[in-house]
Amino acid sequence: MQGRDKDEGGERTGHEAYDNGEAYDRRAYEPFAVTVDLAVFTIRSGRLHILLVERGQSPYAGRWALPGGFLRPDESAERAARRELAEETGLADVAGLHLEQLRTYSEPDRDPRMRVVSVAFAALVPDAPQAHGGGDAARAAWLPYGTGAQGPGPLAFDHDRILADAHERIGGKLEYTCLATAFCPPRFTLGELRQVYEVVWGTDLDPANFRRKVLATPGFVEQIPGASRLTGGRGKPAALYRAGGAVWLHPPLLRPTPERPEGPRP
Rank of each mutant, 00 (worst) to 15 (best):
E222I: 02
A239C: 03
V119L: 02
E16N: 07
G133Q: 05
G69Q: 01
T203Q: 13
D111C: 12
R103H: 08
R72H: 09
Q57W: 00
E88F: 10
L254R: 15
L97G: 07
E222V: 06
C178D: 04
T13V: 15
Y24L: 15
R169F: 14
Q57A: 14
E87I: 14
E75R: 14
R72P: 00
E87N: 11
L155N: 11
L179C: 04
L52T: 05
A120H: 10
S106M: 10
T42F: 02
K213L: 05
E8H: 11
L215P: 02
I43H: 01
R12T: 11
R72K: 13
A243M: 03
L179I: 12
G90H: 07
T42M: 07
P59N: 07
K213V: 06
W248Y: 07
A141F: 04
A128T: 05
Q57R: 12
H98C: 04
R79Y: 00
L174S: 09
A123I: 09
L193T: 01
A149I: 02
L99R: 09
W248H: 04
L249Q: 15
P73T: 04
D204S: 13
E192M: 13
D160V: 04
G3H: 03
K236T: 14
V119S: 05
G134F: 01
R55D: 05
N20H: 10
H132M: 08
A140N: 05
E168I: 06
P129Q: 09
T104N: 08
W142Q: 04
D136F: 11
D158M: 05
L91A: 07
P152Q: 09
A123F: 04
P154V: 05
H250D: 15
G172N: 13
V94G: 06
A120D: 15
F70D: 08
P185R: 13
G10F: 05
V214E: 03
A86T: 05
S58Y: 00
H132N: 08
A33F: 09
R110E: 08
W142V: 05
G69M: 04
L230Y: 09
P256N: 10
R110I: 06
A28P: 00
G235L: 02
K213P: 00
A61H: 11
L230A: 14
R26Q: 13
D7V: 03
A182S: 12
Y24M: 15
F220Y: 15
V119P: 01
V214C: 02
V116N: 08
G133L: 01
G146D: 09
P154R: 14
E84F: 09
A164T: 13
E22G: 06
W142H: 03
T89R: 06
V34G: 00
Q101A: 14
V34D: 12
R47M: 10
P252N: 06
M114Y: 10
D109H: 07
